[in-house]
Lab assay of single mutants.
Amino acid sequence: NNDALSPAIRRLLAEWNLDASAIKGTGVGGRLTREDVEKHLAKA
């Protein structure tokens, strides 16, 4: 759900053309954090 994404995370996902549903969020309530996105990018 994009409503739970911060503007910074939305921008990062758009910049790298990533799908938020493909990344497991570790923040409060399962929210994506910058670290989650960076770890996903490191694996790719």
Rank of each mutant, 00 (worst) to 15 (best):
N1L: 13
N1G: 13
N1T: 12
N1P: 13
N1D: 15
N1K: 12
N2H: 13
N2M: 13
N2Q: 12
N2K: 12
N2D: 14
N2S: 12
N2R: 11
N2I: 14
N2F: 08
N2V: 12
D3A: 10
D3E: 12
D3V: 09
D3M: 10
D3Y: 00
D3I: 10
D3H: 11
D3W: 00
A4S: 14
A4Q: 14
A4R: 13
A4P: 11
A4Y: 15
A4V: 14
A4N: 14
A4I: 14
A4W: 15
A4F: 15
A4D: 14
L5H: 06
L5N: 05
L5C: 13
L5A: 05
L5E: 07
L5I: 12
L5M: 10
L5D: 05
L5R: 02
S6F: 05
S6T: 11
S6W: 07
S6Q: 06
S6M: 06
S6E: 13
S6G: 09
S6D: 15
S6I: 05
S6Y: 04
S6P: 10
P7E: 15
P7A: 14
P7I: 12
P7L: 09
P7F: 02
P7K: 11
P7Y: 01
P7H: 10
P7R: 10
A8Y: 06
A8R: 06
A8W: 04
A8V: 10
A8E: 15
A8F: 06
A8N: 07
I9W: 04
I9K: 00
I9T: 04
I9Q: 03
I9G: 01
I9L: 13
I9S: 01
I9D: 02
I9A: 03
I9E: 03
I9M: 09
R10G: 05
R10D: 06
R10H: 06
R10V: 12
R10M: 05
R10Y: 02
R10C: 15
R11P: 01
R11T: 10
R11L: 10
R11K: 15
R11D: 14
R11G: 08
R11S: 11
R11Y: 06
R11M: 10
L12D: 01
L12F: 05
L12W: 03
L12N: 00
L12T: 02
L12Y: 03
L12V: 04
L12E: 01
L12R: 02
L13R: 00
L13I: 07
L13A: 00
L13Q: 00
L13E: 02
L13W: 00
L13C: 13
L13D: 02
L13P: 00
A14M: 13
A14C: 15
A14N: 13
A14V: 10
A14H: 12
A14Q: 14
A14K: 11
A14S: 09
A14R: 08
A14G: 10
A14T: 09
E15Q: 07
E15W: 08
E15Y: 13
E15F: 08
E15G: 03
E15L: 08
E15A: 05
E15R: 06
E15M: 08
E15I: 07
E15V: 05
E15S: 04
N17K: 06
N17D: 15
N17E: 15
N17M: 06
N17V: 04
N17A: 07
N17Y: 07
N17S: 06
N17T: 03
N17F: 08
L18H: 08
L18D: 07
L18I: 15
L18N: 05
L18E: 10
L18W: 05
L18R: 01
L18S: 05
L18F: 05
D19K: 04
D19E: 12
D19R: 02
D19P: 06
D19W: 05
D19S: 06
D19C: 10
D19A: 06
D19I: 07
D19N: 07
D19H: 05
D19V: 07
A20H: 05
A20E: 14
A20T: 06
A20F: 07
A20G: 08
A20D: 07
A20N: 02
A20V: 10
A20L: 09
A20W: 07
S21G: 10
S21Y: 05
S21L: 08
S21H: 06
S21Q: 10
S21E: 12
S21T: 13
A22E: 15
A22M: 14
A22G: 07
A22Y: 08
A22F: 09
A22V: 11
A22L: 13
A22P: 04
I23V: 08
I23Q: 01
I23M: 05
I23G: 02
I23S: 01
I23P: 01
I23R: 02
I23A: 01
I23N: 01
I23T: 01
I23F: 01
I23D: 02
I23H: 00
K24M: 13
K24R: 10
K24I: 14
K24V: 15
K24G: 05
K24C: 14
K24Y: 10
G25N: 03
G25V: 06
G25Y: 00
G25W: 01
G25A: 11
G25L: 03
G25F: 00
T26A: 03
T26W: 02
T26L: 05
T26Y: 01
T26H: 04
T26Q: 03
T26I: 04
T26V: 03
T26E: 03
T26S: 09
G27W: 01
G27Q: 02
G27H: 02
G27E: 02
G27A: 04
G27I: 03
G27D: 04
G27L: 02
G27T: 02
V28Q: 11
V28Y: 06
V28A: 11
V28E: 14
V28H: 09
V28I: 13
V28W: 05
V28L: 12
G29V: 03
G29R: 06
G29L: 06
G29H: 07
G29S: 07
G29I: 03
G29A: 08
G29W: 01
G29D: 13
G30T: 03
G30M: 00
G30S: 04
G30P: 02
G30F: 00
G30E: 04
G30L: 00
G30Y: 00
G30V: 03
G30H: 03
G30K: 04
G30I: 03
R31A: 14
R31S: 14
R31I: 14
R31V: 14
R31N: 10
R31E: 11
R31M: 15
R31L: 12
R31H: 08
R31Q: 15
L32N: 01
L32T: 03
L32Y: 02
L32C: 07
L32S: 01
L32H: 01
L32P: 04
L32A: 03
L32D: 00
L32E: 00
L32W: 03
T33L: 08
T33H: 00
T33A: 01
T33C: 06
T33K: 05
T33E: 04
T33V: 05
R34V: 15
R34N: 11
R34Q: 14
R34H: 10
R34D: 10
R34A: 12
R34K: 13
R34L: 15
E35L: 10
E35Y: 08
E35T: 09
E35V: 08
E35C: 13
E35N: 09
E35Q: 11
E35A: 11
E35R: 09
D36F: 02
D36G: 00
D36T: 00
D36N: 01
D36Y: 01
D36A: 01
D36M: 02
V37H: 00
V37F: 03
V37W: 02
V37S: 01
V37R: 00
V37N: 00
V37L: 08
V37A: 02
V37K: 00
V37G: 01
V37M: 03
V37Q: 00
E38S: 06
E38I: 15
E38K: 08
E38D: 06
E38A: 08
E38W: 14
E38H: 08
E38L: 15
E38R: 08
K39G: 09
K39M: 12
K39I: 10
K39W: 07
K39H: 12
K39V: 08
K39F: 08
K39L: 13
K39E: 11
K39T: 10
H40S: 05
H40M: 09
H40Q: 06
H40G: 03
H40V: 11
H40C: 06
H40T: 06
H40F: 15
L41Q: 04
L41R: 06
L41Y: 08
L41P: 02
L41G: 04
L41H: 15
L41E: 03
A42N: 09
A42W: 06
A42F: 07
A42I: 11
A42M: 11
A42R: 13
A42H: 09
A42E: 11
K43H: 10
K43Y: 07
K43E: 11
K43S: 12
K43Q: 12
K43T: 11
K43G: 12
K43C: 14
K43F: 09
K43W: 07
A44L: 15
A44G: 09
A44Q: 14
A44P: 07
A44D: 08
A44C: 12
A44H: 13
A44V: 15
A44Y: 12
A44E: 12
